[in-house]
Structure formats: structure tokens, C-alpha cells
């Protein structure tokens, strides 16, 4: 996903000399080509996220389009107030790219995990929040963020994630991507949980349950039509995210239902409201906290009384 993001930014930067790529000292072995080819459009500000955001605001106020890059917890939390005031209050065209969203870097401990970022980013007026599931969605998110005005947070994984879409899906700002059609239940997945959601849908299909599976890279704005359709056409909605159950993607779906005044059965799967205490890789930690396809499908079956 990371390489797809950098390639997409580079394509845009080659056409628009006002596009800048800013890093808070991240991107070793990733940005060298970009820097070599477009030296005036690359800026490593050092390990100073607050300054990076402020500088990008000053540059945006002077006509630049900045993409900011560092680890997801650092770019969303360390400099939260600069994001809120300098970028969102002024509604500036700056894109924040959070590397290693969720439990991507689970082994590194909670300092490098990012399971509150969706909640805090989407709480700020004017901010858009994208969580792509694979390299193709990531590429589309970068292009969409560049096309749209105002600040955007894009939460990505790392490198080497598999492509989950055979061909480029139709997706834009505020829309979702239909993965499987189904009539019994709906599963909404955001970001890097899509593979787990697909596996869950397959397990449920083997049990005779037909799943309407939707990938939702655009958490804010969210696809109200897809949520309304799911609530009216299927018995139950399940949301899956690699994020705290407090304030994240599931909460966004719940808020959408509230806004639409729709009563629906819904259950949100995510990280419980605690710091992850397990040491291990992403898959290991997901299994320990019940965010793998076996655990989720079992809980769904239980909820359905099967």
C-alpha cells in the first residue's frame, strides 16, 4: 500500500509543481527516487510533526498542495491541535498520510499502534477520513484527496499488502465499494480488515448465510445510501475495523443510522477500549483480540442464533 501511495503522489507531483511531499523523518528506502527526481518538491522536516503540520499550513496558504507522511499515531495524535486549527479551522488543502494504521506494527507496542486515529480525525470539522483496504483503493484515495479541497486523513498499512480487487473498483468521495451481493446480513469493512471480512463472508456462506459485503474506504463522509440499503434489505449489519470500538468506523455507521432515523440491528467489531497487551505480529494480535475471520464469523452466527 505504501508504494502505491508514493507512486500515486509522484504521478500527481510530476504534473503539478505546487505539490509537495513532506516527511517527519520517515520514508527511508521509499522516498529516495521521489527526492532525486523532484528535489524541490520533497521536504524532510525532521522529527517534528507539529512543525510539519504548521509549515504545511503556511505553504497551503501560499498556494502549495502538501502531502504529509509519517506513522499514523504520530501524524494524527502528536500534532492534533495543529491539525485542528492550522489545517481544519482554515480548511486548507493538506493531506495527512498515516502509515501503519491500526495494528500494522503490533509488535512494536502501543506507541506505534494506531487505534484511536479514525475517531479523533473524523471528529474535526472539514476533515475527510479515508481508510483504503489495498494498494488499488490507496491509489484512488490519493487521487480523490488531491481532487477535493480541504484537509484529508488517509490511513494506510505498510508495504506488501495483497491486492483484493481484480480490477480498479468504482469509488469516489463518500461512496463505498460493493464486494459481494447478499440478502441475509450486511458486513461493512473499512481499511485493512477487508481481507478478514471477505474470509468471514466465505465462512458464513458455507453455513448458508448470504452476505452483502461492502468495503468503505471513505469513513468521512460516509456512504449513507449503502447503509440505508443494508438496513432495509438485510436483517443485521456488522461493522469491522482495526480500530477502537470507541468513536471509529462502527460509530460512524451508528451515527449515520441515527441521522437517517433508521432502527437497525447492528454490531461493531473492533479493538476493545483498552491498550493491546499482547506482543506479537498483526495476525497474532488480531486472533488474540477476536478480530480474525473465525472469531468474527462465530460471533455473527451466535448473534443470528445459529
Amino acid at each position: 500500500m505504501r508504494n502505491s501511495v508514493v507512486t500515486s503522489i509522484k504521478k500527481i507531483a510530476l504534473k503539478d509543481k505546487n505539490v509537495m511531499l513532506l516527511s517527519a523523518d520517515m520514508g527511508f528506502s521509499v522516498f529516495e527516487d521521489f527526492e532525486k527526481e523532484l528535489p524541490k518538491q520533497f521536504l524532510n522536516v525532521g522529527i517534528s510533526e507539529a512543525n510539519m503540520v504548521g509549515v504545511s499550513a503556511g505553504m497551503a496558504l501560499s498556494g502549495k498542495r502538501c502531502f504529509l507522511y509519517t506513522f499514523a499515531p504520530f501524524v494524527s495524535m502528536r500534532c492534533f491541535e495543529q491539525i485542528r486549527i492550522d489545517l481544519c479551522y482554515q480548511n486548507l488543502d493538506v493531506v495527512l498520510i498515516g502509515l501503519g494504521g491500526g495494528l500494522t506494527y503490533a509488535k512494536e507496542g502501543s506507541t506505534h499502534q494506531s487505534v484511536e486515529d479514525i475517531a479523533i480525525m473524523r471528529a474535526i470539522p472539514n476533515m475527510k477520513v479515508f481508510c483504503p483496504a489495498d494498494p488499488i483503493e490507496a491509489e484512488i484515495c490519493i487521487v480523490e484527496a488531491y481532487k477535493k479541497k480541504g484537509p484529508t486523513y488517509i490511513r494506510i498499512g505498510k508495504s506488501g499488502e495483497p491486492r483484493l480487487h481484480d480490477k480498479k473498483p468504482k469509488f469516489s468521495f463518500g461512496k463505498s465499494i460493493h464486494i459481494f451481493k447478499g440478502n441475509d446480513i450486511s458486513i461493512f469493512s473499512t481499511g485493512n480488515m477487508l481481507k478478514t471480512a471477505m474470509d468471514t463472508a466465505k465462512i458464513l456462506k458455507d453455513k448458508g448465510i448470504s452476505v452483502n459485503l461492502i468495503s468503505m474506504p471513505s469513513v468521512k463522509p460516509i456512504d449513507y445510501k449503502a447503509i440505508s440499503f443494508a438496513a432495509s434489505k438485510t436483517k443485521c449489519i456488522f461493522t469491522i475495523e482495526e480500530h477502537s470500538i470507541v468513536g471509529g468506523f462502527g460509530s460512524a455507521v451508528l451515527e449515520a443510522l441515527s441521522k437517517l432515523s433508521i432502527m437497525a440491528r447492528i454490531k461493531c467489531f473492533g479493538v476493545n477500549d483498552c491498550f493491546v497487551k499482547y506482543v506479537g505480529d498483526q495476525d497474532f494480535v488480531r486472533r488474540k483480540i477476536g478480530l480474525d475471520s473465525d472469531s468474527i464469523s462465530n460471533k455473527i452466527l451466535k448473534k443470528l442464533g445459529i
Binding site: 504548521g54 503556511g58 497551503a60 496558504l61 501560499s62
Partner: peptide
């Protein structure tokens, strides 16, 4: 030229303008 009031923000913004 900029929304300010929370202290410690303006110098970074000004630096971004100067670099531009």
C-alpha cells in the same frame, strides 16, 4: 492571514510561507 490564538502555531505557519 492565519487563524491563531492557540500559542506556538504561528511561527511554523510563517516558516511555511517563507519557504514557499
Amino acid at each position: 492571514e492565519a487563524s491563531t490564538g492557540s500559542l506556538g502555531h504561528g511561527l511554523s505557519i510563517a516558516a511555511g510561507m517563507a519557504l514557499s
